[in-house]
Design a protein around this nucleic acid. Structure first.
Lengths: 207, 207
DNA sequence: CCAGAAGGCAACCAGCAGTTGCCTTCAGCG
DNA sequence: CGCTGAAGGCAACTGCTGGTTGCCTTCTGG
């Protein structure tokens, strides 16, 4: 039997896929996940709603596919390794907001904002999880270089930076200033030994 | 004409108000804001949906009233002033998660998780904004005491701690460990001078 | 040129916010 | 005690949206 012409750019199907994903991207950036109306996507894509549902059984599936496509270029380039953790972190995080076009950045920010939503969390989680090891390695290298005290919890460092960065959602646009602040503050904490693995940090009186 | 028997505890109306708000609290803790079904609230409160809508014109209004009631005891006690910023912050933030009963804590956490939602943000914002000055004063005192370098941006310190704390939402329950981590890390950053007002912090090579 | 995959169309179901019109109950005043 | 008006109950309804279904049309490649 004839297979779907996936991958053969220019086929009827692929044209539809591209148009739907493009439309979905725009709608996601505009209205966020919760506000994304399938009818609207269909109409913008100049495609029937049924067509969308035939290929992606739910909104979650559609957005998952979209995120996957968004992150494709990202997936191909390795994480930065500048020899200095601060620069590595700055660059690595900055990339998250400049995936491809401007729209994609906004769409991703909207998703982050809605990460409380189990569906969204699953989507983001799946996308991020794959590179967790690489990210951790980035921090570990810094520890080995002596930039951070031995015993520092690499994952914790990342979690903290992410927590701060993600706090800046769609409303207030992510900017370099905030990102820098997040990275420097967390690194200062780590250097002060606040982020050792396992044991509770003891209170430190100011000197 | 006879007025509503508001305030006269035990009246029919007040009993209804209490039951509806209690029910709403439970539902909010269980299902979050977006998942809060008015029919369910009505049914749990053993009250008719119409009755709810007559008093609170929308879900947002209902939750606003609920939050207002939740925060009443909090509003009455001043923020801590232990003479040490770390303790102040720890205690002040810890309170947010122990407003009254256990349920209220969970409900509040759910709200925080959904703060991306404009409606929710308005609700939270209104509740929090009122004490912004007090919080800032807490940090300013510490600067005056010399705990933090002069010129430190008090609001920024608070924003950062909040960013980290809030990252722990409903799924992973807020715990003292994470809170401590957040406070200590941000304070370490602040002591290192990362959070001066206005000017961009210069990169600091590790010593 | 034709079989089968993919797309279009229209009507439909289900869940839920919010509404409406009308009836019932209750508190309290005369 | 009985009346009055406010507050509550009830049931049916609108409107929106995600997701479904059955059937017909179009495109594509062998």
């Amino acid at each position: 039997m004839r297979r779907r012409t996936q991958g053969v750019l220019g086929g009827r199907s692929d044209r539809v896929v591209r148009r739907v994903l493009d439309a979905a991207l725009g709608e996601l950036a505009r209205s966020g996940y919760a506000g994304l109306r399938m009818d609207e996507v269909a109409s913008v894509a100049a495609v029937n709603k049924t067509t969308i549902y035939r290929r992606w059984p739910s909104r979650a599936a559609l957005v998952t596919a979209l995120v996957d496509r968004m992150r494709t270029p990202l997936r191909e380039s390795p994480l930065p390794d500048t020899g200095r953790l601060e620069s590595d972190l700055l660059e690595a995080f900055a990339r998250r907001f400049t995936v491809g076009r401007e729209v994609a950045g906004r769409a991703w920010a909207r998703l982050l904002d809605e990460r409380f939503n189990p569906e969204v969390e699953a989507i983001i989680g799946a996308a991020v999880e794959t590179r967790r090891g690489e990210w951790r390695a980035m921090v570990t290298r810094a520890i080995d270089r002596g930039e951070l005290p031995p015993g520092t919890d690499a994952q914790l460092v990342l979690d903290l930076v992410r927590a701060i960065v993600d706090a800046r959602g769609a409303a207030r646009r992510m900017d370099r200033t905030w990102l820098t602040l997040a990275v420097r503050t967390v690194l200062a904490g780590a250097r002060a030994g606040t982020l050792r693995r396992g044991r509770q940090p003891r209170p430190r009186r100011r000197g």
